[in-house]
Design a protein around this nucleic acid. Structure first.
Lengths: 352, 352
DNA sequence: CTGAAAGCGCTTACAG
DNA sequence: CTGAAAGCGCTTACAG
């Protein structure tokens, strides 16, 4: 009958923390041991606890509003009941769909928490360790750099998202960015472009290297000259991309550049914005393209030609892989490659 | 000298978890007790541990790569060293800046984790409890509903963001959305609009009620008729807003609506997209406005007139308030109201 | 079918 | 200045 609210002797030392309901309180109320409470709370009762007692304990749990304490549980079992998604830029609109997919896949048994890092940057060793010290049940890592992956070395259930070419044994779910990049290069060639610049993301990430390389290779096969690095790489930030492009434009113009391919839609929007300020007609004077197909791509001025990456499908596939891992099984398929698709809008057009 | 990697008797039962370095191992290596390791690891040594021992332990810590285990620490102290931000739609581009502000303010002592919920929806009681069971050191809650706040009742360090009019005693950092909404109404009146529709967010959230109410009140004072609910409220999603607007347009047109004010930029982008598909000239046939001033607002077609909400400042102020709370102090100021500003672009214009 | 007890890794009075 | 010990809340063999 330990009523936490009414205990007169409760030490009021810390702030006004909510009184934590413990298994011991539930046990007392139901007249059983904490071991039994644990069994019931975790649904491990089959053939181990009588139906009558299960009912009694369940009632006490719901009356008291008991929730298994994560710290205690983690300590005893080795890991908590939550999963952490690490991504370089979670606030990118792109992740909204990825996250929705993940949640749908992992279900209600695990909480999904996001680790936030700087703009398009990955956390330092130090931060990774702190994250691991939290004892997540599993980790989802989006668009990791090689270095990051190395630091992460062998840490329990792990699924990689959008991580082409990474070593290691973790299951991966990728976009077929190469096919998309090639298709994009083909489109620009068909539009008559002969000299283009590529604006890359500053993140040292495989997926961006793959986009850039595939674009370049196909473009050059088709007789397009690709000015690599003519625009310094930027974070995945509209403003940063706008600035970088504006600064580089005189040089690009002199070199005869008629199109800029960007590693992400967000950067492409920045280029569009800068182009407008510079008085450049798009696509007349300059064509612009991205990767992602964010919802905004349909309402930018002009609409953005971009390589669509199926974000929700990525999240869902990754969530499913992780769930398999968490259940202690090996995924049937260790590498999933999702098809991409070129979406043509007004930001590119036939050159006359 | 317990080297975790080399122990031959290590049970290989679970997956390939990284060997966890414990305080006991550090203590053994440094020839001290775990109590001393704890003191050193937490920087609580001043006047309690000799410089020589501090150095010895620190060296062992860095050699072993020891990180204080969050579960153990949480259990012992009552709370972990991380903070959770709960927001209805974290993948909104808006939060990128809020998060940056928060991180800058709380510094490296606390990890920032985001709780992800559905599109513009708040987590259920069940999820909140699971979150609290994780024992966060503090909570930041953005744009909460009344109901959510009630469920949260008295749970240690808590700061509310963009939560006008909420009861309770938690420190709050708000936008002065009323002033912005009034300014917006004034602008539409000056442009000659006489009948406007308001597209609200479906979230049952104070900040949205405040935006809507303030807009309506000022608009009506200025002789504008506001069609409330003529467009059903939507989630903060471009596509949902586009659909809702398109479906409602025949009715709006019949009622003489010449402008749509949206609760968020994202929804406004949806209306812009739908208007384009319907062949409506913006702002000629229809003016559109939002709230936020996302980076995209400058590159939509046409540029979006919107009430700028200083997102980074919000995050930073909230982070500072929380830090004060975490330090056990009471914030000097319990309600911070950040100024907003109307940004006029091409999506609104003088009516002829 | 049920409970007593050990142990997960840490922190914090308390002795010395 | 330093360490032995209790305790945070839970889970899991192990007895019964």
């Amino acid at each position: 009958m330990v009523s936490p609210q009414s205990g007169p002797g409760k030490a009021p030392t810390p702030p006004a923390r909510a009184p934590r309901v413990t298994a011991a309180e539930v046990a007392a109320k139901a007249g059983v041991s904490t071991a039994t409470v644990s069994l019931v709370a975790n649904g491990k009762t089959s053939g181990r606890v009588s139906a009558e007692i299960v009912a009694r304990v369940a009632e006490a749990i719901s009356e008291l509003g008991y929730v298994v304490d994560s710290a205690g549980s983690s300590l005893a079992t080795g890991a908590g009941n939550f999963v952490i998604l690490i991504a370089p830029d979670i606030s990118n609109a792109f992740y909204s769909q990825v996250i929705t997919g993940i949640r749908a896949a992992i279900g209600p048994d695990y909480q999904l928490l996001l680790s936030v890092t700087g703009n398009g940057r990955f956390p330092a060793v130090r931060d990774v360790r702190k994250l691991l010290a939290l004892r997540p049940a599993g980790l989802l890592v989006d668009a990791p750099s090689e270095q990051f992956l190395a630091e992460l070395a062998a840490t329990g259930p792990l699924v990689l998202l959008d991580a082409p070419g990474s070593g290691g044994t973790a299951p991966r779910v990728n976009f077929d960015v190469e096919a998309g990049a090639a298709e994009l290069a083909g489109h620009l060639a068909a539009c008559g472009h002969r000299t283009v610049a590529y604006l890359d993301s500053v993140t040292g990430t495989q997926t961006f290297q793959a986009r850039r390389r595939a674009f370049r290779v196909t473009a050059e096969q088709l007789g397009i000259r690709v000015l690599d690095g003519a625009i310094p790489s930027t974070t995945i930030d509209l403003g940063a991309a706008a600035e970088a492009f504006a600064a580089a434009w005189p040089q690009l113009a002199a070199a005869g550049v008629t199109a800029v391919a960007c590693a992400t839609d967000t950067q492409a929007f920045g280029v569009l914005q800068a182009a407008r300020k510079l008085g450049l007609a798009v696509p007349g004077a300059l064509a612009v393209t991205g990767f992602d197909d964010l919802a905004f791509a349909g309402s930018s001025d002009p609409g953005l030609t971009t390589v669509r990456l199926p974000a929700a499908a990525l999240g869902e596939a990754a969530g499913n892989q992780l769930k398999t891992l968490l259940a202690g099984r090996a995924p049937a398929c260790t590498l999933i490659n999702l098809a991409t698709e070129l979406v043509i809008r007004e930001s590119t057009g036939l050159r006359t």
